[in-house]
């Protein structure tokens, strides 16, 4: 039981991977980053279940080809079964069931957020558990206590906007384009993080929940004036936009770092892992590393290639779940997004 085929179709991305022993990635293909143009004579449309349906079969074939693997080499099929768009998930789950049945291999349903929470383990020699996991992306901002790959407890989550969404909406307020996270991050590096003191929502001392909606609105009104949604951007020069990016980033990062270390203390662990798209944010990496070093806490940030939605992390977690005796029968069903997953 060492080589797992992973399938991910929970939202925008269709992805297929072949991973050995939860660590050695032999193939990790993402449809939007992979040239299917020649095969389809068209652009891969986003956000449509139909898109997953059209690209999944050739992507599976291509992943096996890239990995130099045949059906005989595969020891299990791991698939994202929750959370996500129900129609999109169903396509992956149905394909995984068909392959598992036809090839007579174990089927493993994987929770997409748990895969993000454990993705940092793909790049370390010894599994880093127990740890506090921060999953931070466009759709999710959550803390977990990970005791093992199959023992993951939620500690807190955003009650309104995810951190990555706040980055994108601030980029939109500043008309910096989409996706906004990387642009805001780049401009923040040249700005003054102390230029404006934007609000940091901490809730009470015990809460590990997040809120970034008020921060987004504070940036909006800082730009345009209280209660106004237009007219202010023209007054800002390049430096003041960089200062807003830096001050906004600092507010997000302060909350993420503070809550993560609060969770470390409360749960009595000495390790932090970070996964999800915003894990690539440079201010977050620098400040979290600084704070963890100061508090003698080990920090493992998922390599950028496994931070976006990808099937390698699904195959990796699937491997560890199978090792621990977890697999699913043909009743495995897709479960839509609820914020408590």
């Amino acid at each position: 039981m060492r080589t797992i085929l992973g399938i991910e179709t929970s939202c925008d991305e269709t992805s297929v991977a072949v991973v050995d022993e939860g660590r050695t990635v032999r193939a990790n293909l993402i449809a939007t980053q992979f040239d299917l143009h020649a095969k389809f004579g068209g652009v891969v449309p986003e956000i449509a279940s139909r898109a997953h349906l059209e690209v999944l079969d050739p992507l599976i074939e291509e992943a096996l080809h890239v990995a130099g693997a045949s059906a005989d080499d595969i020891d299990g099929i791991a698939v994202t079964s929750q959370p996500g768009l129900i129609g999109a998930l169903l396509i992956g789950v149905t394909a995984a069931k068909a392959l598992a049945w036809a090839w007579n291999k174990p089927l493993i349903g994987v929770n997409h957020i748990h895969a993000h929470a454990t993705s940092a383990a793909m790049a370390v020699d010894v599994a880093p558990w127990p740890a506090v996991a921060l999953v931070v992306s466009g759709g999710h901002t959550s803390l977990y206590h990970v005791r093992d790959f199959d023992s993951i407890t939620p500690l807190g989550a955003t009650v309104d906007d995810a951190a990555g969404e706040a980055f994108d909406k601030v980029a939109s307020i500043l008309k910096l384009g989409y996706p906004g996270g990387p642009v805001v991050d780049r401009l923040a590096a040249t700005g003054n993080p102390l230029a404006t003191r934007f609000p940091r929502t901490m809730f009470d001392a015990n809460s590990l929940d997040f809120s970034f909606s008020g921060l987004k609105t504070a940036v909006l009104y800082h730009v345009h004036g209280a209660g106004r949604t237009t007219g202010g951007l023209e007054r800002l020069n390049e430096q003041s936009i960089a200062d807003i990016c830096a001050s906004f980033s600092a507010a997000v990062v302060d909350v993420l770092v503070e809550k993560t270390l609060r969770a470390v203390q409360r749960e009595g662990v000495r390790t932090v892992v970070v996964g999800g798209g915003v894990a690539a944010n440079s201010m977050l990496r620098i400040r979290l590393a600084g704070r963890c070093a100061r508090d003698s806490v080990a920090l493992h940030v998922t390599p950028p290639v496994y931070c976006t939605d990808n099937a390698a992390m699904i195959a990796a977690l699937g491997y560890h779940l199978l090792q621990r005796g977890h697999s699913n029968d043909w009743t495995l069903s897709a479960v839509a997004t609820t914020s408590q997953s």
């Binding site: 959370p83 768009l85 992306s137 759709g139 906007d161 997004t337």
Partner: peptide, 16 residues
């Protein structure tokens, strides 16, 4: 629990 009601901008659909 209204904490589970959050923005679906990225995930597109939430069900409660």
């Amino acid at each position: 629990d209204d904490r589970i009601v959050n923005s679906p901008t990225f995930v597109l659909v939430n069900e409660y």
